[in-house]
């Protein structure tokens, strides 16, 4: 299955989407990432029961926070995916890429200190 997905994507592997905290997403955006999408397992299929549900709530919290400070909340997104569903991953990646391209570059880019 040689699928292609946008080269703009950088993957950070985590043991469970529930480990991704609001602070991690904010830091990525603060340091210049144009968008952050958290991809968790399908709802109801979390090995840790509620990790993906908590991830969604955190992403929603980031969206509210971003909107409050005048940055488009759409830059943070949550997707659910089965780990064996490569084509859907590629589709989500394209979807995210398209969504962010419509929004344009992160206004924080080059204005805050880059990540160490």
């Amino acid at each position: 299955m040689r699928l292609t997905y946008p080269t703009s994507f950088r993957i950070v592997r985590v043991p469970c989407s529930g480990t991704v905290d609001v602070k991690h997403i904010l830091r990525a955006l603060e340091k210049g990432a144009d968008g952050v999408c958290v991809i968790g397992c399908m709802e109801g299929e979390c090995q840790y029961k509620t990790g993906n549900l908590r991830a969604r709530k955190r992403v929603e919290q980031v969206q509210r926070l971003l909107n409050a400070i005048g940055v488009d909340g759409e830059r943070a997104q949550m997707y659910n995916l089965s780990s064996s569903d490569g084509p859907l991953f590629a589709k989500y990646a394209e979807d995210m890429d398209e969504r962010i391209r419509k929004l344009g570059p992160n206004p924080m880019k080059h204005k805050t200190k880059p990540a160490a």
Partner: peptide, 21 residues
Amino acid sequence: KKEAGMLASALRMYFANQGIA
């Protein structure tokens, strides 16, 4: 500490977004 980190990050982004470098 965690909530302070989130607030500080949000404030930094706010200032950067307002062009207050």
